[in-house]
Amino acid sequence: MHAAAPSPTHLAFRHPLPIRIAHWINVTAMTILLLSGLQIFNAHPELDFGSTSSFYKHPALTIGATGESPDRGYLQVFGHRLDTTGVLGVSRSDGDVSERAFPSWITLPAEQDLATGRRWHFLFAWIFVVNGLVYLAFGLLSGQLRRRLIPTRAELRGIGASLREHLTLRFPKGEEATRYNVLQKLAYLIVVLGLLPLQILAGLAMSPGFDAVAPWLPEAFGGRQSARTAHFVIAMLLVAFVFIHLAMVLLTGPFNQLRGMITGWFTVRAEREAS
């Protein structure tokens, strides 16, 4: 790696302004999309495959309540039932026990209100789409997208070593930390150019108006209800990505990382010898 003499600690410019702005708009939009999306899910807490709904006869997933006394909430996936009382199916809101798929503390609005949930969802879906297009246009024109997200051949060859480093929580330091490593690049590539566009398409496939324009779209997902299931599963994958993303920020110096995404400047620490 580097010479024995440690490089001095200095600031490196890491994230250009358009990417920082796009990142924080995205944080806001995706948070609101998730919370309002769970509100919308609550109106019909069942997932199916195909064009039509099974109306709880043979669902892929249901979040429900037994209606017994005391009431029990459950999550049922492919026939396997899990008691989730207190969180899913049956939870407390404003002190009262109520039957609702996702609890009030994670839906927007908190109370059961499909109409308002839809308005939040679609407004921020538009903000998310426009923001994503601006990000992609900037990324393509500036070369940032290629530099940040596309791994080089050499990087791909080093994927085993990178994997070992991550599993033992030894992360790249010094100059190495000023650019994305191969696992980061692949993770961001899958999310930015895979999951997020797919999520928009799955959302559009549920629109009766858009299906008239593009009848092939719901079919590509296997029908409208399959698209709804895909939309939900992708949302959960994105939540998993955000958890990993935040864990990585915490493990690699949260203040430095946050400053990097707010001011653009990132502290490069002097590399310790033979760590």
Binding site: P208, F210, V213
Partner: peptide, 23 residues
Amino acid sequence: LQAGDDATQFVQRLLMTPQTLAP
């Protein structure tokens, strides 16, 4: 919040002709 619905209507009407049929 209404702005999102207006955008949806505007774009859908732009993409579809008056004759475009639902599947």
